[in-house]
Write a protein that binds this DNA or RNA. Sequence first.
DNA 1: CGTGAGCCTTGATCTGCGTCAACGTGAACT
DNA 2: AGTTCACGTTGACGCAGATCAAGGCTCACG
Lengths: 245, 245
Amino acid sequence: MHAQVIPLSVPALREACSQCNLRELCLPVGLSPEELAQLDELVETRRRVLRGQHIYRSGDTFEALYAIKTGFFKTDVLLEDGRDQVTGFQMAGEILGLDGIGTEKHTCNAIALEDSEVCVIPFIDLENYSREIGALQHHFHKVMSREIVRDHGVMMLLGIMRAEERLAAFLLNLSQRFTARGYSPTEFNLRMTRNEIGSYLGLKLETVSRAFSRFQDEGLITVHQKHIQILDVAGLKKLLSERRT
Amino acid sequence: MHAQVIPLSVPALREACSQCNLRELCLPVGLSPEELAQLDELVETRRRVLRGQHIYRSGDTFEALYAIKTGFFKTDVLLEDGRDQVTGFQMAGEILGLDGIGTEKHTCNAIALEDSEVCVIPFIDLENYSREIGALQHHFHKVMSREIVRDHGVMMLLGIMRAEERLAAFLLNLSQRFTARGYSPTEFNLRMTRNEIGSYLGLKLETVSRAFSRFQDEGLITVHQKHIQILDVAGLKKLLSERRT
DNA sequence: CGTGAGCCTTGATCTGCGTCAACGTGAACT
DNA sequence: AGTTCACGTTGACGCAGATCAAGGCTCACG
């Protein structure tokens, strides 16, 4: 796992947003080519993060946002008594670190679930560029707003849905995000454990496991460890809209 | 309910941020007097909202944020099947409408729980002023970030806390916000029903009622309908940090 | 001042999910 | 190829909170 020392030119280390294939998903959405070229100065460095490593921890001083170039992350919050809650799973093109702006300290942990690469966006620079590039400013506001709306969705999950509804919503959400990234909507590998899914959904890992089995028995999906195939998208959606009780 | 037509000078209808006693809590935090004077142009109108009325509904086109000048609000989301979830309670100095930026449609309902007054902040103007006033831009980002952190807190409530912990956290949070506004930390009137508290906390109204009764029996609080007096703040806090089970 | 409607409280009972326990599985080592 | 260890599955049982039900309080309104 030791990196061989290979001489690299500076441009190779810098990440050019204008060249990135995620530019339609990530911060640069909606920028003109000229604006995009300006933005290339914004991303200072790329950073490799190995599976299990943190990008930041709760309490760390907030300095930068992180755009995921490749890989998969979770964010979680720990209570003093040892309980913890996964607050989200993030994939390529999504932005990590928004929680830190308010207090200038991060309030959660961001951990790579697989070997990943992130673009480091110094926040002070983002604010400066935002003042010059209206489209960037506006898009950044949208990113934050969408995070708030996503959180409301999680509150709905946790507040009023039953176990199987939560898991169905979770799978459909993953499916939709994989689709947006050009992957199969119906077949993917989970990067997180049953325990992490449970923590996110407010359930115990046994309940998650049972719900997976139940879905499989009903012909909605197939599960082999972390490999999921969705057989009946409509069936999963119906689970969400049907009120039982 | 018909408003009498009373001639008013324009300055009376306009809300001057620089004169507002909430300026230390609301958007203008951290602005210099000169910047504050600029901001006075930003807030276009004040709007009265009577108890039970919406400021906006899910699906409405997003155009403005709303700063609460006086009063008390809830936001909620409705599912097609009729279930709903309260996503937050907002009081003076807090900003409503952030959910709408991302999609240009509001994604929840904002409803006054008592007769209230809000300052209408056209979002396009806010973005324009933000580009000129760095401190405003930065503070607005903080406001959004704090909303994200608040949402994470609610996820913790819903995901891992038991009923009494949730209610204790809720009361302590209200107490702290009343304190910041110069009201008593230990004595206040709830503006929401047991049902609304339950919806926010992911509990049924009966469970909320029982938890109130239990707290009263244990000498932590007194409850008379909507009137709450906290007798033992430390006791409530202990409920949160103690892991039972 | 009596009536009704909305809200709240309390008790009895039910149930979905948690807890506990045992076993299965597969990938990474030796 | 065998061992180990983390992760996953499944069953039996228990409990926190939901559900159902009955009654009380408070305030608006005729």
